[in-house]
Write a protein that binds this DNA or RNA. Structure first.
Lengths: 131, 131
DNA sequence: GCTTGAGCTTCCAGTCGCTGGAAGCCACAT
DNA sequence: ATGTGGCTTCCAGCGACTGGAAGCTCAAGC
């Protein structure tokens, strides 16, 4: 199967698939004409990576997960450990963004937003509290 | 004031301050020995950018905000528009991360996490539902 | 058989926002 | 005089792609 097909089936752009090969994440066979040739299993791995990436795993984590995925004898605990780490990271990120949202939301709601130059958002950013 | 001092007062590393100068965000005077020389107002701007960056504004947005910050006659509505955009972006990001968290959390809680190779996380990523 | 267009190949460069390191100048203390 | 630390410049690299150029291959239409 050509790269375009594999791209359609995996949900990854061809460029990205070539990049993954370049960094040694998922390498394909080559046909006699030099084209990359993807098997069903290759596509499976590509989709696996696509899903893992969209779940926030880094490419390096995908590499780990792929090797765990291929290892029929690995313990589920190994996988769970990685996933739990990731979960904590996501939680931290959500908390950070929520704090950020509250602060910015506060600034926005205090800004009258008209033609006058007086602006609590700018004041807040500049460190002046306005009190 | 030397760059090290400005760095301490603004909360930005010297490297970052030089980078900001390189991209024309905040440029400092030069002393006779070639050292960058920061005024109190410069430090104010640096801290302004530091805060805006930590609130999730991109460097380009900081550039806009800085020009609005320096413009005594701009309308607060101009600033508010940028901030509201950013707020929507942050909300979208939070929603995305929350969905992600739920999905990954679901996978994790279904994984027994012991020495057995059977693992719902891997199965979930590979597209097999397990039903 | 020839042309056309799409799809494939490689390689190089750019994105964003820094960050690290090397090489060399400058300032101040001992 | 010597050391130490801070300053300067420039170059390279991070992560994860993405865009573009130049050139090869394939399938279809005439």
């Amino acid at each position: 199967m050509n790269i375009g097909n594999a791209a359609r089936k995996s949900g990854l752009p061809p460029k990205t698939i070539r990049y993954y090969e370049e960094i040694g994440l998922i390498t394909a066979d080559r046909a006699s004409n030099g084209y990359r040739d993807y098997s069903g299993e290759d596509v499976h791995r590509l989709r696996f990576v696509q899903r893992a990436r969209s779940l926030g795993f880094s490419v390096e984590e995908c590499r780990q997960l792929l090797s765990l995925y291929s290892d029929r004898d690995r313990a589920s605990a190994d996988v769970k450990a990685i996933a739990i780490d990731k979960l904590g990271e996501i939680d931290r990120k959500i908390a950070e963004l929520t704090g950020l949202r509250d602060m910015l939301g506060h600034l926005v709601s205090n800004c009258h937003g008209d033609a006058r130059p007086d602006c609590p958002i700018i004041d807040g950013l500049s460190g002046r509290t306005g009190h």
